[in-house]
Design a protein around this nucleic acid. Sequence first.
DNA 1: CGTAACCTTGATTAAGATCAATTCTCGTGG
DNA 2: CCACGAGAATTGATCTTAATCAAGGTTACG
Lengths: 237, 237
Amino acid sequence: MITNVLKKVHIFSGLNKEELEKLCGIVKVKAYNKGDIIFFDTEPYFGFYITEAGLVKIYKISKDGREHILHLIAPYNTFAEVPLFENFGEEYEDVYRYPANAMALEDETRVILIPARQFRLLVESDSKICIKMISGFAKRLRHLNHHIEELTLKDVTKRTAGFILTEYNNKKKPKNRKESDSAIELNISKNDLAAYLGTINETLSRTFKKLQDEGIIEVEGKMIWIVDMDKLKEVAA
Amino acid sequence: MITNVLKKVHIFSGLNKEELEKLCGIVKVKAYNKGDIIFFDTEPYFGFYITEAGLVKIYKISKDGREHILHLIAPYNTFAEVPLFENFGEEYEDVYRYPANAMALEDETRVILIPARQFRLLVESDSKICIKMISGFAKRLRHLNHHIEELTLKDVTKRTAGFILTEYNNKKKPKNRKESDSAIELNISKNDLAAYLGTINETLSRTFKKLQDEGIIEVEGKMIWIVDMDKLKEVAA
DNA sequence: CGTAACCTTGATTAAGATCAATTCTCGTGG
DNA sequence: CCACGAGAATTGATCTTAATCAAGGTTACG
């Protein structure tokens, strides 16, 4: 049932049963396979999304084909809400475009589309959602700030090390640590990881190799073991 | 009077006289000279700011001294609101830090400090402010998105051309166009502009020279004339 | 198996940072 | 009003990082 999904989405966590069901009435569920486009940044804005299953990348492409990934959206997270609130309260411009492209990275990626018009009414009538929306935006701003800082002030090696550390810290930690705990598993291709780190796959490949040669990590396919945590932190600094 | 300033700030534009005066009671006005630090990213968060006069840069510094400017804050705009809303509605963490450094770029820069605690109460009681806050965040997210796109997908020449175009478009346009209309005046040093464009002053200097040699712009001190608008747009593309 | 997508490795190139040396500009005090 | 000095800007020579180009190697999956 969709209500069970919506409940797990931060901005809707305060809604009661009736409100959730009302919301259900206006949403649309969509399914995509790996590589499918969810929207292009050229399309007129229709509404924002929630990832229900799978993984979605939000990205931009330059004229000559270089790609940069801004966000990776895991289940129960929202994306493309920004145009919803630009000039909120003022005249509503119907001509907004999506701020970036969105593509499914896994088969059977399921997303929920929430149309802008109806949702705007809901927000205006429910200040709790409004406040949660703000806090969601604040987190995203923090993330983008950090992203820019990484891209402009650190080289590829530092960024790569930083990514590994972040992934490691985000990992659910079992109570009894085993040695396998120091491993992370990539859930995206190295091509995509490179695009996320602001580089290309060749350079990322070389960077992994360098960190491996220095005895800091061990890479095998999608698995990365952290061999020397202190050194890793030092490199990422 | 401070109320006259606050009125001009987007998020407060809906407040009535009494509300404005109440707000005045909790704010603090501060003055800085060129080069003065308003806050460091290491300081515990106390509240957010409004620029009343002058110019403020929000920036990050790398370990080895490279600087990158995230925002330039003109009068009547807010900055450092993000920590205010992280985990809003949940337990309030008193230990937040400022997300970046802030420095006054002009003498007699005046800012208004709005303490977090009191302001949080105001937002919770006034859904209009809440909605304006969201729309402000949305605009900032759009800006950061664009900033990242520029930094990762375009070279310094394209970014420089893009900056000139943006400045030109933001300029107040008189009804009767004179030829001087195609000029913009930098209100920051070229050093700061370089840090904003994600490069260094030497490279920016060379880039200006190149664009000038190609007959696209004319640079003299803080003035930039657009000589060939079509070419400029083409370069920025 | 065979093919396509993915990844790695090597050689080369290019953009831009760094280092170093002047030159320019502007505010200050004599 | 001029001279001085500090900060800002320019210019040149060189170096470094990472992108590009090119060729194989690996893996996954029908």
